[in-house]
Design a protein around this nucleic acid. Structure first.
Lengths: 246, 246
DNA sequence: CGGCAAATTGAAGTATTTCAACGTCGGTGG
DNA sequence: CCACCGACGTTGAAATACTTCAATTTGCCG
C-alpha cells in the first residue's frame, strides 16, 4: 500500500486507508520545482512523503519571502474552502502523495475520522504559523537563528532526522540552503552567514560543513532562542528517547 | 437573548442559540486587565463582544511581544485540546462573552453545526496568523505600518468600525495605543512615531489626533503595504458598500 | 580540471535601537 | 479654578544591527 508508510494516517481504519490509497498518487519534484501555485483552488491535496517544501510569498516586484517549511507528513492544499495564499516549491528533491481534490473532499464528508484528521492538521498549521511568528518577532538574526536550530531539534522527526547524536555530541543538519534559510528568517544570506559564524566564534556551535553544525553549548542556544518552554534537559532527554526508538 | 447580537452565531438554529445563551455570561474588563493566561487549560471559551484584546508573548526576562489582536466576534480559548500559547489582555476596555469549557465542549460534540463553527474559527485564526506573518516579514517599519493600516481598512467591521468616510475623506481610527502597536509591528514606540510622521511628511496620511489618521494617498499606502491582493478601487468600493449598509 | 552555484568576507551606507529629554493631554486634589 | 501629576506621545543624538554591493573562496558535479 502506497500510503502505508504515513504515520499521520496510521490511526485510520483499514478500509478508509484503502480508499485513500486507491486515489493516491506519488509525484516527484526536483529541488526548485513548483508544487502548487498561490491564488487559485488547487487540483489536489498533497502530503509530503520525503524532502522539504518551502512556502513562498511572491511580491509583484519580484522579491520573495519564505514563510514556512513543509516536511514529512504535513498536509497542504486547502480542503473544502479558501484559496491558497502561498506558492509551494520543492526546497530539496521531494516526493509528495497527491489526492485529487474532489474525491478527497467527498471522502472526508462521508467519513468523520478523515474530517477530524483534516481539522487537526489545520490546528497544527496554526501552531506552526505561530512558531514562525515568534521566531520572526525576535529582533536580532542571531536570536532567530538560535530559535530555528531549536525548532530543528524539537521537530527533528519531521525534518528527516535533522538532529542526531554522534559520539555523544549533538549534531543538526540544516535541510535547506542558505538563501532559503535567510529568507525564512527575514534577512539576507550575507547577514545569515555572519550570524552563523558569530555563534561559532562564541563557541555555541561548531560548523562541520555549511549544512551541518555541532551544538557545543545548548544552554546558551536555548537562552538566545528565548523559548522558556523547553529546558536543556527536556530537549536532550526527548531527543535521546526518540533516537533510541530507531 | 444575550448572544443575539453576535453575527458569528446568526447561522445557528434557534434551539442551539438558546442553549449557548443559557450557559453564556458577559464579563467586563478594564484596559490592561488580563483575560486569559498562557500555559494552562482555560476555564472558559471566550468571544469578544466589544473592545480589543491583545495576544501577548511574555519572555522570562520581562520583555513582551504582541502577536495579534482579537476584535468583535473572535473566539478564543482552545476547544477540545491544546494549551494556550499567549496571554490575552484587554487592550481597551472590553466585554467578553464567556462559556464554561466543559458544557461548551459537550454541546459542540453533540451538535455538528457548533463543531463546524469552531473549525471555521480555527481556519480564521490561521489566516490572521499568516496576515501578521506577512506584515512582520516586511523589512521596514513604514511598510509594516502601511500594511497594518490597510488591514484596519479591510477588516474595519471587526475593529469596531475603524474606517469611515468623512466629507468624502477616508479616516481610520487606530484602536490601540502606540506602545501596543509598536510591539505588534515588532519595533519601539519611538521608531513607530517616526514612521507615522514619515508617512505624514510624504503626504500619504494626515494625523488628526494620535489615534486618528486621514488617508490622503491610498494608492501609495497600498504600494508600501505591498499587498497585491487589493487594488485601490476594490478597497474603496468595499468600504463604501459596507458603510452604506449602516 | 573547469565551471558554476553556494557560501563567505569586506566595506560603505541605511535603518533601527537605545537613552535621554521634552511636550501634551486629561484627571485629580488643593 | 488652576496646578500638578502621570501616562502617552514625540524629538534628538549616539550606538548598534542590518543591508547592499563587490570581490573572493569553497565545494560539488560533469
Amino acid at each position: 500500500m502506497k500510503v502505508a508508510a504515513l504515520p499521520i494516517l496510521s490511526g485510520l481504519p483499514e478500509d478508509l486507508r484503502s480508499e485513500l490509497d486507491a486515489m493516491c498518487r506519488i509525484r516527484r519534484f526536483r529541488a526548485g520545482q513548483t508544487v502548487m501555485v498561490a491564488g487559485k483552488h488547487s487540483e489536489f491535496i498533497g502530503c509530503v512523503r520525503r524532502g522539504i517544501l518551502r512556502m513562498v510569498k511572491r511580491e509583484p516586484d519580484g522579491r520573495e519571502q519564505v514563510v514556512g517549511l513543509l516536511a514529512q507528513g504535513n498536509i497542504f492544499g486547502r480542503v473544502f474552502h479558501g484559496v491558497l495564499r502561498f506558492d509551494k516549491e520543492a526546497a530539496t528533491d521531494a516526493e509528495v502523495y497527491t489526492f485529487p481534490r474532489g474525491p478527497f473532499e467527498a471522502l472526508a464528508s462521508r467519513r468523520p475520522e478523515l474530517e477530524q484528521l483534516v481539522m487537526s492538521n489545520i490546528s497544527n498549521e496554526l501552531d506552526h504559523a505561530r512558531d514562525w511568528l515568534l521566531l520572526v518577532s525576535k529582533h536580532t538574526i542571531v536570536e532567530r537563528l538560535a530559535g530555528f536550530l531549536t525548532i530543528l531539534c524539537r521537530q527533528w522527526e519531521a525534518f528527516a532526522g535533522a538532529a542526531r547524536f554522534e559520539h555523544g555530541k549533538l549534531v543538526v543538519r540544516v535541510p535547506i540552503i542558505r538563501t532559503d534559510l535567510a529568507s525564512l528568517l527575514g534577512t539576507q544570506p550575507e547577514t545569515l552567514s555572519r550570524s552563523i559564524h558569530a555563534l561559532a566564534d562564541k563557541g555555541v556551535i561548531a560548523i562541520r560543513t555549511p549544512h551541518e553544525f555541532e551544538i557545543l553549548d545548548l544552554k546558551t542556544l536555548l537562552d538566545l532562542a528565548g523559548d522558556e518552554q523547553v529546558t536543556e534537559n527536556e530537549l536532550v532527554e526527548s531527543l535521546r528517547r526518540q533516537l533510541r526508538r530507531e
